[in-house]
């Protein structure tokens, strides 16, 4: 089964359009420069609505994880490795870790982005460990 497509809204479209093109991005405030994720229509720091889409390096570390066993949805392969990744630019993202055995997932492990396609010809950023598995 195919991974379900993300839900695109007025406020998050820039993120998913970039993902479809193989880029991991965050919103940046054009006034004060603050990076933010999840996307939102106004800078919570300075209230500017002028924003830019900032491409990120796609590198970070595992902040936390969960190996999901039950319940199951046929669109995914179990166990699903859910992760929170703290990206090097200072924003956090919910994603998956791929290319690693569940038993080898570690908090603090360095990871980098790759992309997986979804239904509706979209894509989501997922992460794989840097270097060979421990």
């Amino acid at each position: 089964m195919t991974r379900p497509a993300p839900i695109v809204t007025d406020d998050n479209a820039s993120f998913w359009e970039a993902a479809r093109g193989g880029k991991l991005v965050a919103q940046g405030c054009r006034e004060c420069g603050r990076l933010r994720h999840p996307p939102r229509p106004m800078c919570p720091e300075c209230h500017s609505i002028q924003q830019e889409t900032v491409e990120l390096a796609g590198t970070g570390t595992v902040y936390s994880y969960a190996i999901l066993h039950h319940p199951r949805n046929p669109a995914f392969t179990y166990p699903v490795i859910a992760v929170l990744v703290d990206l090097d630019e200072g924003v956090r993202i919910v994603s998956n870790l791929v290319g690693v055995e569940p038993a080898d997932v570690r908090i603090g492990a360095p990871v980098h982005v790759t992309f997986e396609t979804t239904a509706d010809d979209m894509a989501v950023p997922v992460f794989e460990p840097d270097g060979p598995p421990a």
Binding site: P4, I7, T9, Y65, L68, V80, A82, V126
Partner: peptide
């Protein structure tokens, strides 16, 4: 819905487990 579902993080247990 938008930031967890595409990654199979579908239930309150999976959200909170993180």
């Amino acid at each position: 819905g938008q930031w967890c579902s595409p990654f199979g993080v579908l239930t309150p247990a999976s959200w909170m487990a993180l």
